[in-house]
């Protein structure tokens, strides 16, 4: 299983390619409120997480802030992996 640090680096790297050029992005940055992720990129982000990490992103996840930052996404990936493992 991917280590936490490498998972965080990987998520951050992907988001860096996704967000608006010139946006500053740290692990706590609110991707939506800051304008880093634009309107047309929401489903791109969802699709990437589902395809790449095998997640199933629900309405509750999206609107409950589980995709809102690097930290939140890493937490969601780990949580779903632990559920699958158990």
């Amino acid at each position: 299983m991917m280590r936490l640090d490498s998972l965080r680096v990987e998520v951050r790297r992907y988001l860096t390619t996704l967000v608006e050029r010139g946006s500053t992005l740290d692990d706590h940055t609110d991707l939506f409120a800051s304008g880093a992720v634009k309107s047309m990129q929401v489903l791109e982000l969802v699709n990437h997480l589902e395809d790449h990490y095998g997640l199933l992103v629900s309405q509750r996840d999206l609107f409950g802030g589980r995709l809102r930052s690097v930290d939140a996404i890493v937490e969601l990936v780990l949580e779903q992996r632990m559920k699958k493992a158990s």
Partner: peptide, 13 residues
């Protein structure tokens, strides 16, 4: 063709 992402974003905000 763009509605899914746009609707989700508008609701998020």
């Amino acid at each position: 063709s763009e509605a899914g992402s746009a609707r989700a974003f508008q609701l998020l905000q």
